Amino acid sequence: MTIAETILQLYQTGGPVIAVLLLMSVIGLTIILAKSLQFAMNRIHRFREARAAVELFLGGDREAARALVSGTRAPAARLTALAIQGLDAGQISEPRLREELTRVGNDELRALRGGLRPLELIAGLAPLLGLLGTVLGMIEAFQAMERDGSGVSPAVLSGGIWQALSTTAVGLGVAIPAVAALSWLESRVERLGQEMDSLVTRLFTQAPVNHSTPAAR
């Protein structure tokens, strides 16, 4: 049986609820693939250069530290480069530099979290829609029993119940991968946020004091 025939059979079994669930599965899969591609292209898992640059900067080799994180696409390295540049230049006060780094870091994380909300809705709504389809199917099956009276066939009744339960199965089949993917994507963003916070904190707490830094403005 081809994929198209399988989808048609599911639609004939569960009706519009199955159609909505299948549409949600396509949307969810698209979001997962798009976010995975975005994370890979932005190299959010790359912390090695940022960590090495912090070590070099704290060790006094500021030129090598700046060179290591310049021109990179990794968010952690870009934020580290901005922090190193601000600390090395000493043109703004530490509180203002911290505020700017916080703003940039939050912007990076917000951009990475974009699109996760629809995936969260799919993960939450899919099983509920499946349950709704089951309830509607059971109502229809019992209405058929009422119409036929005592002459209803057990095979017909079991077939109606099977059709009703199929929507719950499809709903769970859509929700489970969505929940797993959402958890994985959010964990990567959270890990990035923790790493960026750790790198910036190290720079501010362990870097040598630059006495040329002006007073707070």
Score class of each variant (00 low, 15 high):
P177K: 00
T2D: 14
E190K: 11
D197P: 00
G159N: 13
L192D: 01
P95Y: 04
P177S: 03
A53G: 02
L58W: 02
A164P: 01
E63Q: 11
L192V: 06
W162L: 13
A216T: 11
R217I: 12
E49W: 01
G133T: 03
V17P: 01
S166L: 12
Q85I: 08
G173D: 08
L116T: 07
A155N: 10
S93N: 07
E63S: 13
G105H: 02
A207Y: 05
T213M: 09
R48A: 15
V54D: 01
R66Q: 09
T213R: 06
A164V: 05
V104N: 14
F39V: 08
V200Y: 02
L203F: 07
I27N: 06
E5T: 15
L185G: 02
I27L: 15
E49S: 13
E99Q: 14
P154K: 08
H45E: 14
G133C: 05
S93R: 04
G151L: 13
L128H: 07
G60H: 05
L125K: 07
S93V: 08
L97I: 10
D148H: 10
L131F: 09
F47I: 10
R113V: 01
G151T: 12
R110G: 13
G86P: 02
E55A: 15
G151M: 07
R46G: 04
A89E: 13
L10H: 11
G133W: 10
M1H: 13
R66M: 12
R98S: 14
A76C: 04
L199S: 00
P16F: 05
R188W: 05
H45M: 11
R46P: 02
Q143T: 15
E195C: 00
E146C: 06
M196Y: 00
G28C: 12
L21M: 10
Q38I: 09
I27V: 15
L87R: 03
A215H: 07
A126I: 07
R48W: 14
S212W: 04
V104P: 04
S93W: 09
N106M: 13
V170K: 06
S183N: 11
Q91M: 09
I139E: 00
L165A: 11
G71T: 04
P154R: 07
L125V: 14
T6R: 07
P75V: 01
P154W: 12
T201N: 14
R202W: 03
L23M: 14
R217H: 08
G14E: 00
L33H: 14
L128R: 08
A76G: 03
N106H: 11
R110Y: 08
L33M: 15
T13V: 11
F57N: 01
I18E: 03
D88Y: 02
A89K: 14
I18C: 08
V135P: 07
